[in-house]
Design a protein around this nucleic acid. Structure first.
Lengths: 224, 224
DNA sequence: GAATATATTGACCAAATAGTCAAACCATTT
DNA sequence: AAATGGTTTGACTATTTGGTCAATATATTC
């Protein structure tokens, strides 16, 4: 009757070790990431986990509960990756390098975790009600904002070209937009006969371009 | 048996004029825009239109058909507004003004048609399969790209600071990102104690900031 | 090894929902 | 006013799907 404790089930069959709980969660993660809350099917999750549908409701109360659990585990994973990927505090970079490093980090995180793109898109389409997801994104944005603020906000008095708030929003939008709007860019660019692929080389190029753009727009220009 | 011809039904009751066909389409537009294909309910559409559910299937084959029709009408509407709002060709603006005008136009279109935000988000989350929607967005993007190209691409040889392709992507991302990522910005900004609202004044500010950013990053800096 | 607790299953239920159909309705034509 | 043809309806069906439950299997404890 109770949700499973910390006991480790040692099934008979082939002595499959991965606890059922974990297998369900894994299946749920995949299904929900792929189709979202509304599109996911409990039966499909059960199938993916290789168990009976009723067992889902034994381990997790209901669809909503399973969704929450799955989402939470995804968020923890992504959040962890993001946080460990964050540039260290107080690095002795020049302002240019600090911004460039930050952009590289974030672009890399999004490139390496394409699953979260769909997740975020669905969440945004849903009105951004999910406190957990948005909260998980917050540190990423916060850190970015503070970096921008540090590098851009306190320059020489004669150079408050762009309000740091807008510099932050622009940077954030450029980074996310690259991934969120990919289907549109692919079409427009290929229609313009420019580029068909969104490969790593292009993403590297794009990363530098975004950094260049922010640097050019916010930092005093060096007279070459 | 056949879909209604061009006949105008003159019902008995209160001689309600708006043809049923049109009323259904209007209701469907609202419902689909609000909840998307998966979330919309045929019954709800029927209710909104004040008619029987079976009548939906009389006027439109099935849910998919109704969705297509509704989406098409939305796209036509939005597309029309966008196209009429486009700056005229060959305006004798300075490069700065050309970019600024373009940004103002697009930001205004998105501000005045907030419905398309959710529509685009859902479509993107769906993988961008909808040819019609993306195609409708194309002219908007194409025009933007060409403007950027015109203004940025052929400057003095010593000023190819940002590749026009990236300048375009950045501009497009900043404009759309402002609206797509609004839930995130609201949180981060209010958490930073900066701003709580996304009102018109702020959007105006944001519009100019985006234009400034592109101009600063792509055009040679005037030595004041 | 009997008793007990935990895991797992197949069968079933109830609600939601897209879609169907014959009958009724209403305006126009003859 | 009878016939006709497009329009509208209520009742119905089929299917999908989240969720429940008693029964069974497996592990753990005594």
């Amino acid at each position: 009757m109770n949700p499973p404790k910390a006991s480790v089930a040692k099934g008979c069959k082939v002595c499959e070790d991965a606890s059922t709980h974990e297998r369900i969660l894994e299946a749920a993660r995949a299904e929900f990431l792929e189709k979202g809350l509304g599109g996911a099917r409990m039966q499909e999750i059960a199938d993916r986990a290789g168990i009976n549908k009723a067992l889902l409701h034994y381990h997790f109360r209901d669809k909503e509960g399973l969704h929450q659990a799955a989402l939470k585990s995804v968020i923890e994973m992504v959040s962890g990756r993001i946080l460990t990927a964050l540039p260290e505090e107080g690095m002795p970079d020049s302002p240019e390098e600090a911004i460039r490093r930050m952009v590289r980090t974030y672009m890399g995180v999004l490139r390496d975790n394409p699953q979260i793109i769909g997740l975020v898109l669905r969440e945004l389409a849903d009105g951004g009600q999910n406190f957990e997801l948005l909260s998980a994104l917050a540190p990423m944005a916060q850190k970015l904002y503070r970096t921008v603020l540090d590098q851009v906000g306190s320059k020489a008095d004669d150079w408050p070209a762009i309000d740091p708030v807008h510099a932050f929003m622009s940077l954030f939008s450029m980074v996310w937009g690259t991934f969120l709007l990919k289907p549109i860019y692919s079409r427009v660019l290929s229609a313009a006969g420019i580029r068909q692929t969104f490969d790593d080389a292009f993403l590297d190029e794009r990363t530098e371009a975004i950094a260049d753009m922010v640097i050019l727009a916010t930092l005093p220009r060096r007279t070459a």
